[in-house]
Deep mutational scan, measured.
Amino acid sequence: CHSECLGNCSQPDDPTKCVACRNFYLDGRCVETCPPPYYHFQDWRCVNFSFCQDLHHKCKNSRRQGCHQYVIHNNKCIPECPSGYTMNSSNLLCTPCLGPCPKVCHLLEGEKTIDSVTSAQELRGCTVINGSLIINIRGGNNLAAELEANLGLIEEISGYLKIRRSYALVSLSFFRKLRLIRGETLEIGNYSFYALDNQNLRQLWDWSKHNLTITQGKLFFHYNPKLCLSEIHKMEEVSGTKGRQERNDIALKTNGDQASCENELLKFSYIRTSFDKILLRWEPYWPPDFRDLLGFMLFYKEAPYQNVTEFDGQDACGSNSWTVVDIDPPLRSNDPKSQNHPGWLMRGLKPWTQYAIFVKTLVTFSDERRTYGAKSDIIYVQTDATNPSVPLDPISVSNSSSQIILKWKPPSDPNGNITHYLVFWERQAEDSELFELDYCLKGLKLPSRTWSPPFESEDSQKHNQSEYEDSAGECCSCPKTDSQILKELEESSFRKTFEDYLHNVVFVPRKT
C-alpha cells in the first residue's frame, strides 16, 4: 500500500485506493498535508475557505447554543480562536489581540433580562453583547459592586439597553466600559436606550469621564423622579442622539420631579488639616426662599486615587461607600458681607490618608415646582503625618564578641513616609551569675543571650482551647457569634421535631 494509506488498500502504491488515510483526505486521495488554498479540518480532512465560511455563517444565523462559528488559524479551520487571539470578521482569520481579548457573548432569543446578581454573573467577562440587555433589578445585597464585577467589562451592545423598574439602582456607572450601543435591534418605538419607572436612579454616568455613542435609535425617559433633566440632556449631547427624540420621548413632568437638581456650584473657602482632623468651610448658599434650606450634607471617604465619582458603590438597598454628615444651616444675616460661612470639623480620621470630599445642599421643593440647590466639586484632601507606631517583631542576635545583629519589621501604621529608623542602645553591667558559677561542674549549661522565638506554653494553649472559665478566673470563653447562636437554635429545633416524629412513629394507638 501507499505510504499515506492506513489499515489496508485495494490497489498497491495508489493513494486513492486506501481504506483510511494516515494524515489527511483531499478529493478522494490521501495526502501528507493540505496544500494551499485548503485548510486542515478536524485533523483528517482538507477543506477550502468557502466550506469553513459556510459553517461560520450557519452557526451565526441559527443562534443555536453550542454550535461553533468556525475560524481560520495556522492553516486550520477550527471552532474558535485560541487564547490571546480574536477573529477578523472580513476573512475569519485569528489575529493577536492588542491588550485583553474581546469576548463576544451571543444571547438566546436576542435579549437577556438581568433581574438578579445570579443572572448578571452569566455575563461575567463579556466585552461584546450580541443582542439586547434588559435591566430589571428590584433589590439585593452589595448590588453596585456585584454588577460592576460582572457587567463592568461590557464595551458594546449590538441591540438596545433597557432599564425598567430597577428600584435598587442609583447610577449606571457599573457599566464602566460601555462605549457603544449599535441599535441594530430596537425596542418598540425605535428606541435604543429605554429608561422607565426607576424610582431611585439619580445618575446615568459621570459624563466628564465617560463617552457613549448610540449609532441608531432614540432615547426614552419616563417616570424617573430623581433623575434630573440636565442629566438626560447631557446624554443626548454626548451620545449623538440630540435631535432624534420626539416631543413625548422625554417626559418633562415625570423626570426629576422629586430630585434636588443642583444648578449652582458650592466653593470651599477654608481648608485646614491635622493628622486626624480636617476643618472645612464653604461659601454660604440661600435659595430664593431661605426657609427652603434644610441644611447641608457632607460626604467623605478614603480615596487612594483621584478618580472618585459621587455615586460609586451606591445602591438604593443601603450600600453606600460614603460617610454622610448632616449639618444645620448657619444663622442668616441681613448683611451679605457678614454672612457666616458654614463648615464642619471632621474628626477621627487616619493620618497621612487622602480623602475625597464634597458637600451639597438639602432643600425642600418650592411652590413653583422649581428645584434649587448647590453642590461642590469633589475635592481631595490629605491629612498630615504623625509619629508612626512601633516597629514590629524586633530580633537581636550576637554573632561574635563585638557585634549584635538587630532586625525588625516595619510598623503596622507608618502614618507617613518613613525615611529612617533611630536605634538606641545602652551598655549593661555583666551578670554576677557568670562569676559565681563553678565551671568545672559536669552538665553545666552556660547562660545564653542568643534570641529564641517566643512560644506559647501548654497552660496558655489549654486556656485558649477551654470553653469555660478556669477556677483562677484568668480566662473566659469568647462570646458566641450570631451565626453560632442561630445554628444552635436550628439544631435544637431539629432535635425537638425529630423526637416528636419518633414518638408518633414508635407509639401507635392500640386498636379498641
Rank of each mutant, 00 (worst) to 15 (best):
V104R: 04
H106Y: 10
E109F: 02
E111R: 11
K112H: 15
I114T: 01
D115C: 03
D115Y: 02
S116Q: 02
T118G: 15
S119I: 14
A120I: 06
L123C: 06
G125M: 12
C126G: 01
C126H: 00
C126A: 01
T127H: 03
N130W: 02
G131C: 01
I134K: 02
I134H: 01
I137K: 00
I137T: 12
L143W: 15
A144T: 02
A145G: 13
A145N: 13
E146D: 04
L147P: 01
A149N: 13
A149K: 14
A149Y: 05
L151Q: 00
L151V: 14
G152Q: 06
L153F: 06
I154E: 00
E155P: 00
S158F: 11
Y160M: 13
Y160F: 12
Y160N: 12
L161D: 00
L161W: 00
L161F: 05
K162C: 03
R164T: 07
R164L: 15
R165A: 14
R165V: 06
R165M: 07
A168I: 04
A168S: 01
V170P: 07
V170K: 04
V170M: 04
L172N: 02
S173N: 12
F174N: 02
F175A: 02
F175I: 13
R176W: 03
R176I: 05
K177F: 07
L178K: 00
L180D: 12
I181G: 00
I181K: 00
I181N: 00
R182H: 10
T185K: 15
L186S: 13
L186A: 10
L186R: 13
L186T: 10
E187F: 11
I188C: 04
I188Q: 06
N190Y: 08
S192L: 01
F193S: 00
F193K: 00
F193A: 02
L196V: 14
D197W: 02
D197M: 06
N198D: 01
Q199N: 09
N200W: 02
W205R: 02
D206F: 06
D206C: 10
S208N: 08
K209P: 05
H210N: 03
H210A: 06
L212Y: 02
T215E: 04
L219T: 03
F220N: 03
N224T: 06
K226I: 05
K226E: 07
K226M: 11
L227C: 05
L229I: 02
L229K: 09
I232T: 15
H233D: 13
H233F: 03
H233A: 05
M235W: 03
E236N: 14
E237R: 11
E237N: 14
V238L: 13
S239M: 15
S239C: 14
S239W: 03
G240N: 04
T241M: 13
T241V: 09
T241S: 08
K242P: 07
K242I: 09
K242W: 14
G243S: 08
R247P: 07
N248G: 08
N248F: 14
N248Y: 10
I250K: 03
A251L: 06
A251E: 05
A251V: 08
L252M: 10
L252P: 06
K253L: 11
K253D: 03
K253P: 10
K253A: 06
K253N: 12
T254F: 07
T254A: 07
N255A: 06
N255F: 11
D257G: 12
D257Q: 02
S260G: 03
S260Q: 05
E262W: 07
N263A: 12
L265A: 02
L266D: 00
L266W: 01
F268Y: 06
F268C: 02
S269T: 08
S269Q: 06
R272F: 00
R272W: 01
T273S: 14
T273V: 15
T273Y: 07
S274L: 07
S274M: 13
S274E: 11
F275N: 08
K277T: 09
K277S: 06
L279Q: 03
L280E: 00
R281T: 01
R281W: 00
P284E: 15
P284T: 11
Y285L: 14
Y285W: 11
Y285K: 05
W286N: 07
W286M: 07
D289R: 09
D289S: 05
D289Y: 05
D292R: 09
L294R: 04
G295Q: 15
M297Q: 05
M297P: 00
M297L: 14
L298K: 00
L298W: 01
F299H: 14
F299S: 03
Y300M: 14
Y300A: 05
Y300H: 12
K301A: 12
E302A: 11
E302D: 10
E302V: 04
A303I: 15
Y305F: 13
Y305T: 11
Y305K: 04
Q306I: 02
Q306A: 14
V308K: 08
T309P: 05
F311L: 05
F311C: 04
F311Q: 05
Q314H: 07
D315Y: 05
D315L: 05
A316F: 14
C317L: 09
G318S: 15
G318V: 08
S319F: 13
S319T: 05
S319Y: 14
N320I: 04
S321N: 15
W322P: 02
T323D: 07
D326F: 01
I327S: 03
I327T: 04
I327R: 02
I327F: 04
P329M: 04
L331A: 13
L331T: 14
S333E: 13
S333N: 01
N334T: 14
N334S: 11
D335I: 12
K337F: 14
K337R: 06
S338V: 12
N340D: 15
N340E: 15
H341A: 12
H341S: 13
P342L: 10
P342A: 11
G343V: 01
W344G: 14
L345P: 05
M346N: 01
R347E: 11
R347S: 07
K350W: 14
W352D: 14
W352K: 10
Q354T: 07
A356R: 02
A356T: 04
A356L: 01
F358K: 08
V359I: 11
K360T: 02
T361M: 10
L362H: 14
V363N: 09
F365H: 02
F365P: 14
E368D: 11
E368W: 12
R370T: 12
R370M: 03
R370A: 13
Y372D: 07
A374W: 04
A374R: 04
A374P: 15
D377M: 05
D377F: 03
I379T: 15
I379Q: 13
Y380Q: 04
Y380P: 00
V381F: 02
V381H: 04
V381I: 14
V381Y: 03
T383S: 04
T383I: 00
A385T: 14
A385V: 03
T386G: 02
N387L: 05
P388L: 02
P388W: 00
S389L: 05
D393V: 08
P394I: 08
P394Y: 04
P394M: 09
V397L: 06
V397A: 14
S398P: 10
S398L: 02
N399P: 13
S400E: 15
S400C: 09
S401T: 09
S402P: 04
S402N: 15
I404S: 06
L406P: 01
K407A: 00
K409W: 12
K409P: 04
K409Q: 08
P410F: 10
P411S: 02
P411H: 01
P411D: 02
